[in-house]
């Protein structure tokens, strides 16, 4: 109680900071780092900087870029609206089959996107389980439209948001709900005014991850939506296609996607890189 030095950092024998280095780790660590960094350096070295304005200034490039930004944003909004409630159910309710539900919902995280695209076609295609009905009743055909791009991106990216928000929800003490109830707040009022504000940072982080994943989506998109310039040709699809006839354009477009990724990483730095 009378220990004046109580708030000084405690030191014990064995708690010294400097680690004992097994030097053999340095070699694979250096090779691994080079392996990860060199491709990015190569991209920067081979970028035709002089022609960059011409390569990126074309109207078709701007169309692809705008389409990518719009569809990724739309997919993220849908993922928030549908994904936050899913995250709440997974984090707050205990029921039979919860583990199974979580596995199914997060499956697109590990499913190869091309297979995801095939699955989307079988469900929402013209002859698909739901798609056939949509066509018959409403005359709506989803595949190979801009909406299909959004569907494909949402399918692949929403699990990132769900996982992130579910983790954040587990960090929100459920007793705040009880405190709100003792103050007369209904369940919906409590969710809206207590839970959601406390969840906001988790939703923001999840939304950024989701958006980044949606922006880079290629496999499911080209399978389910195709590559029609102006309607379904997003940036990654255009990068792939232009590699055939105009490699410089592919490099320039890749550089743009790299810059966007760096910007996202910088934005998430506070939350994810502060190890």
């Amino acid at each position: 109680m009378t220990d004046v030095a109580a708030d000084r950092p405690r030191r014990h024998l064995g708690s010294e900071r400097s680690p004992r280095v097994p030097y053999g780790l340095f070699v694979p660590a250096a090779i691994g780092t080079a392996f990860l960094v060199l491709p990015l350096v190569g991209l920067l070295i081979r970028t035709p900087w002089r022609q960059l304005p011409r390569l990126l200034g074309g109207p078709d490039v701007r169309t692809a870029l705008r389409l990518s930004l719009e569809t990724a944003t739309a997919a993220t909004v849908i993922a928030i609206v549908l994904g936050v409630p899913i995250a709440w159910v997974l984090a707050r309710l205990t029921f039979r089959g919860r583990a199974m539900l979580r596995a199914l919902i997060t499956l697109p995280l590990v499913l190869p996107p091309v297979a995801g695209g095939i699955a989307l076609l079988l469900a929402y295609g013209r002859r698909g389980v739901v798609g056939g009905w949509l066509l018959k009743v409403f005359g709506i055909s989803l595949p190979f439209t801009t909406a299909a791009v959004v569907v494909a991106e949402t399918f692949v990216a929403m699990p990132f948001l769900i996982v992130s928000v579910e983790g954040a929800l587990r960090g929100v003490d459920i007793r705040y709900d009880h405190a709100a109830a003792t103050l007369g707040a209904s369940r919906w009022f409590t969710f809206r005014h207590v839970t959601l504000p406390m969840l906001a940072p988790g939703i923001a982080a999840g939304a950024v991850l989701c958006w980044a994943r949606a922006l880079g989506e290629f496999g499911a998109t080209i399978t389910f939506a195709g590559s029609y310039p102006g309607t379904t040709e997003t940036m990654p699809v255009r990068v792939y296609l232009s590699l055939q006839d105009d490699p410089d354009a592919a490099i320039a477009l890749s550089l743009v996607l790299l810059l966007v990724s760096v910007a996202i990483l910088a934005g998430l730095r506070e939350r994810w890189l502060r190890a």
């Binding site: 007793r175 705040y176 405190a179 003792t182 207590v194 406390m198």
Partner: peptide, 12 residues
């Protein structure tokens, strides 16, 4: 009216 042991003031 309830005063909780750790208060549970809404942090936001």
């Amino acid at each position: 009216g309830v005063v909780f042991q750790d208060y549970l003031l809404f942090p936001t």
